[in-house]
Design a protein around this nucleic acid. Structure first.
Lengths: 233, 233
DNA sequence: TTATCTTTGTGCTTAATAACACGGTTTTAT
DNA sequence: ATAAAACCGTGTTATTAAGCACAAAGATAA
């Protein structure tokens, strides 16, 4: 699993935000505790209830953070893209994971023991500020999302998800095909609705010429209209 | 508004978590930047869209953090009790407030300029860890809450809110009357439902002898059953 | 290649919850 | 003290979204 020893330059490229504030001694220390792991499509990265041990940073691929609620329904809480950090919250809160994580597609993820991170934090306030900022941003997103998911109607929620996926993972060369190919079920779990309603609403959007669908390939045609639908709820 | 100069001992009692990690010089510095403000029942503490300037700590009273969504419906995101800190997230995230805050009842709140907090953070990693821990706990709660609010049914959501209010604000001497007296509308906004449904569901709980209601006074009679209702959704 | 499983799509039914209307009650303000 | 406003409770109706059944199309595996 663990790949060959990496040079500090290679590591620096993987985790620039974490690396940059460190002194040389701290960089050496971190490099000794740095490992890389590969995950297959749909593979579980961690489960709800497990004890967190590592900070993870996604180097390539796409990851979902989700939570299974009552009656087998799953809710995607957030998604992770390239160079984003995750899996550290529960450790800082001294809890087990309340969410699970899985790979949407094949992923490369680096692991750094949280004990190592905490040691670095104790001597580097700039690094501490990085986590404070990151957690603060995520908490703001969570607050917004709570209201969107509870108050918007189905069309608004799905429109929001489509815009969100475009903003997060971007589009292909044609400038409008979403780079992420999700199953209807994942799209539903992201938007807090049943799979049937995701399918139906997606078809409606296609009839209204807001998007085109070709299997899991979705092209955003009228982004402004989608934004409007998302906004009015 | 600003009360008479307080002694360091008095301040230490107000904000023990913040105070304890500081050196004497840092304590002196903080004391110079410490002010106290009173708010009346229902008074707004800050509004969505405003620029955050101060860390606040609730010294007495009860506060709601809420967000107005589509169609005038308001969602209570979290509530603050004695000795809890708030209003700092947006500053750390370099955003304006995405939520608003108001006093449920008369409140005393201390204000500390965020510039002062940031200065202290830069020289005190223990203080930084306090915020990292606090934000991590809150983010976990937000994740759990997202799933509860979206997936549980009305009865489950209201039961959860009642348990939550008991755990947060406690009960009176009789050991079962909730110490917080909320309007039906606030109870609805906490539980993501309309006011009529909060009223109806509350009545149902009363008929089922899970609670008794006397105006805004709510007694928890059968906590176990309520927990069960909350859990199964 | 064939068989099996998963995913997608469609129609119909049912359940859950919001919306509305209105009368009575309590609180607040003057 | 009195008027006005806000809040509470209840019945009725309308809307939204979930649930279910089933067929077709793709994907996966033996």
């Amino acid at each position: 699993m663990v790949k060959k020893e990496l040079s500090e330059e290679e590591i620096a490229e993987c985790i620039p935000d974490l690396w940059q504030p460190l002194t040389q001694a701290q960089k050496d220390y971190l490099a000794q505790n740095f490992t890389i792991q590969k995950y297959k499509k749909n593979e579980t990265i961690y489960c709800e209830g497990e004890t967190p041990k590592h900070l993870m940073c996604l180097l390539s691929g796409k990851v979902k953070i989700f939570k299974d609620g009552v009656g087998g329904r799953s809710q995607i809480i957030r998604v992770i893209k390239d160079k984003e950090y995750f899996a550290y919250r529960a450790y800082f809160a001294d809890e087990n994971f309340v969410t699970a994580a899985a790979a949407f597609e094949p992923c490369t993820i680096c692991h750094i023991p949280m004990t190592c991170i905490v040691k670095l934090l104790q001597e580097n306030t700039e690094l501490a500020m990085f986590f404070i900022r990151q957690l603060s941003v995520d908490l703001g997103i969570a607050d917004e999302r709570t209201v969107s998911l509870t108050q918007k109607h189905i069309r608004g929620r799905l429109a929001e998800s489509l815009i969100f996926l475009k903003d997060t993972y971007g589009v292909e060369e044609d400038m409008c095909t979403l780079s992420i190919y999700l199953s209807r079920e994942d799209l539903a779990n992201l938007s807090n609705m049943t799979t049937s309603n995701a399918i139906r609403t997606l078809s409606n959007f296609a009839s209204e010429k807001l998007i085109t669908i070709d299997g899991r390939k979705i092209k955003i045609i009228d982004e402004e209209k989608l934004k409007k639908i998302s906004k009015i709820g």
